[in-house]
Nucleic acid binder design. Structure first.
Lengths: 225, 225
DNA sequence: CCCCCTCCTGTACCGGCGGTACAGTTTCGA
DNA sequence: TCGAAACTGTACCGCCGGTACAGGAGGGGG
């Protein structure tokens, strides 16, 4: 039971790296078994076909993704009393984590599945859809909390704003990978942070507005890294 | 010479649709020749291998992409004297064009290539990279023109802001496709528009800031759809 | 009128890959 | 020591990318 899990994990590790570089269609099972040092029969003992491998791969990826967001934004929330400051700190931590990746972000499996679409069954497509919806709910929850305190300067739909976080991440990954500029992704996250700050925070470091808005917000923003 | 071009175009049309749904690895040549009603030999007369097909596909896609942006932002520029208003109108027109697509955006070949990476030669990867750099230059040019007139409220790097446009588009496509919500992409573009407006336009419809900033900007923004 | 070039078709073949089937083997805990 | 879990080995199928090469239709230019 233990050894089986270990082999399974090793296959998934190898497969994930390969799939993110070449897509599902471009990744052969033979290549996976060669790199894991397992036989073909051994592979099919763990996964009955490629679709099942994809399913396991995607589920593991999504769970890991959720775990990372939980940790980052959870930590940020613990450090900051204010929901806006917590969210801004979370984005900062996220951008730092992304820029610390040695070879840049390896790619997002959700996007890979999205661009392979028609060759998977409904279940995988639903899993993928639910992953994106989970992001929407996650960021939406945080943004609603912010909006309870800070009225946005422009009227915005919360779900659309939440989706913007996912968009910038997914798009930033594509740009970063295509340009072979690992930093681009982290910069995009910081750009998004600027947007959020601009949207919810009254003008600071511009003395003009502070005069009428009062300095309570100005002080809070001033302490931000 | 004429008939050859026509067949070639037909192959590319079929291939583009297939590749955007299933990726390069997931698209078989046999399936392409079946749908185009050509023989295998006929296919290889036009493209010596799959890599050459990908090259032609990508180049055509990028050219078309550039043409669309030229037209939309060119039209917007002709209609507006102010570079900011022109850019904002361009984003509006773009979002309208995207929401008018009957089945949603079919996907971006640049992203497809990005997630297939390792199975293409250097030339394709360079083409893809240059396409993204061209977007950066395009939007960067427009944003620099804006910044000459409007000082941004927050310090931003022009290239990073230009990349934000590409990020939101690429990310929006992934979200839209994955969620099977065709409108999401258009909404994301409008969200980006809100960001640009917020970044460059002094607060309007919020009387607080207008008092000190003067109403020249306020009037310009008021006429915006 | 024929020749040649473009634009294909037809046939045959190769090796890699996804997947199946199934028999046999090792390992390890109850 | 028995049996289940976790494999290995072998053989085979059909699809696919790709190669090779021969031949044919159709049209325009000498």
């Amino acid at each position: 039971m233990r050894k089986g899990e270990e082999t399974r994990t090793r296959i998934l590790d190898v497969a994930e790296a390969a799939v993110l570089q070449k897509g599902f269609g471009g990744t052969s099972i033979e290549e996976l078994i060669a790199e894991t040092g397992i036989t073909k029969s051994g592979f099919f003992y763990h996964f009955k076909d490629k679709n099942e491998l994809a399913k396991a791969l995607l589920n593991r990826y999504i769970e890991n993704d959720e775990r990372i967001y939980d940790e980052i934004f959870g930590r940020a929330r613990d450090l900051m009393d204010d929901p806006l400051q917590a969210f801004l700190l979370g984005l900062k931590l996220l951008s730092e984590l992304l820029s610390d990746l040695p070879n840049g972000h390896p790619g997002c499996l959700v996007a890979t599945v999205c661009y392979y679409e028609r060759l998977f069954d409904r279940e995988i497509q639903e899993t993928n859809r639910n992953a994106v919806l989970a992001w929407r709910r996650r960021f939406g929850r945080m943004l609603r909390e912010i909006m309870d305190v800070y009225p946005p300067r422009e009227p915005v739909d919360v779900d659309q704003l939440a989706d913007m976080v996912s968009s910038v991440l997914e798009g930033g990954i594509v740009l970063s990978k295509t340009l072979k500029e690992p930093n681009t992704l982290a910069e995009q996250v910081l750009m998004l942070r600027t947007f959020v700050r601009l949207l919810f925070l009254p003008a600071v470091e511009q003395p003009l507005a502070v005069v009428r808005q009062g300095q309570a917000f100005g002080a809070a923003a001033g302490g931000q890294p």
